[in-house]
């Protein structure tokens, strides 16, 4: 054994390798973070800036104040887009959650064929909105689609022209959207149902509660977090929704199915009103931020 010199409080002896070891994780993360900083947050600021200019076909960088916002809110098209978003959003979210929850409850009754049925309800989620739009455009085709089928079945007076009817076209977007997403909502609710402690339900059964009461009073209230998640996901999809409208109706007939997303695109890239387009993008961003940020904040806060 060696005799020990009383070691004095050692000075920091960090060599290059040691300091590299300390920096390495940050160096690895840095490119990704830099890219996000520039291409997400930098670009958002850029877009915000553009919305305060009078850029038309090309960006100009002279600030003109709120001019673009004034013009945006004086566009009948924008009002149409907002109105449609309200209709689409409310119906899309409401129907998806109702059907999703209903399907999940049905599927939770110890269904033998669950393994077959579940993928059937969920597969539309794997499809591109463009494919969904194309399929439903054909399915709802006033001449050859569902209307024709009904006539062939003998229901001669059946009329289904929503796709070309400016008053009803937005509802076709709702139908196709619900078809695509409701299976996913079902999967979310089903996961929630499976996560409920079976003993609680056994206790309720022993207490003498009938099945409908068990669902109304115990199970559905316990699914509150799933309702919240489903709402967030669907609201977010509704605001961003672009492809589906383009493929299904192209925003028409006329401007009957205009949504903020299609408005932004057409004003920016085809109507050469870049400042107004930017202003509408900023409005969309604000809408989503208002929904997502509180949600993310609460989700991240819970964990340490």
């Amino acid at each position: 054994m060696t005799t020990i010199e009383p070691a004095t409080a050692s000075p920091p002896r960090r060599n290059f390798a040691d300091s590299l070891r300390g920096w390495l994780p940050k160096l690895v993360l840095a490119p990704s973070f830099a890219v996000i900083l520039l291409f997400v947050y930098g670009f958002i600021l850029w877009t915000v800036y553009l919305s305060f200019t009078n850029s038309r076909i090309l960006p100009v960088y002279k600030l003109v104040g709120f001019d673009a916002y004034v013009r945006l809110w004086s566009q009948p098209n924008w009002y149409m887009a907002m109105k449609n978003l309200a209709i689409f959003g409310v119906l899309y979210i409401g129907i998806c959650i109702s059907i999703g929850l209903g399907l999940a409850i049905l599927m939770d009754q110890r269904i033998r064929a669950e393994g077959i049925l579940r993928p059937i309800f969920l597969y539309p989620m794997a499809l591109s909105f463009v494919v969904t739009g194309t399929a439903w455009k054909w399915f709802l085709n006033p001449g050859l689609g569902i209307e024709n089928t009904m006539h062939n079945l003998g229901w001669e007076s059946f009329k289904f022209d929503w796709l070309v009817n400016p008053d009803m076209a937005i509802y076709t977007v709702v139908i196709a959207g619900v078809w695509q997403a409701s299976g996913f909502v079902m999967a979310m609710f089903l996961a929630g149902l499976r996560g409920i402690d079976g003993e609680i339900i056994k206790a309720a059964q022993i207490d003498g509660a009938p099945l409908t009461k068990i669902y109304r009073r115990i199970i559905i209230p316990m699914l509150r977090p799933v309702f919240l998640s489903a709402f967030i996901v669907l609201a977010h999809m509704a605001i961003k929704s672009y492809d589906l409208v383009i493929a299904l109706t192209g925003g028409g007939p006329g401007n009957a199915t205009e949504l903020p997303s299609t408005f932004m695109y057409s004003y920016t890239f085809t109507r050469s009103q870049m400042a107004v387009g930017s202003a509408s993008a900023v409005m969309m961003l604000m809408g989503i931020t208002a929904i997502i940020v509180p949600y993310l904040y609460s989700e991240l806060r819970e964990k340490r």
Partner: peptide
């Protein structure tokens, strides 16, 4: 300080 066998190891990985 932490000393192992006469060696101060505070700054060792």
């Amino acid at each position: 300080d932490i000393v192992i066998d006469g060696q101060v190891v505070n700054d060792l990985h």
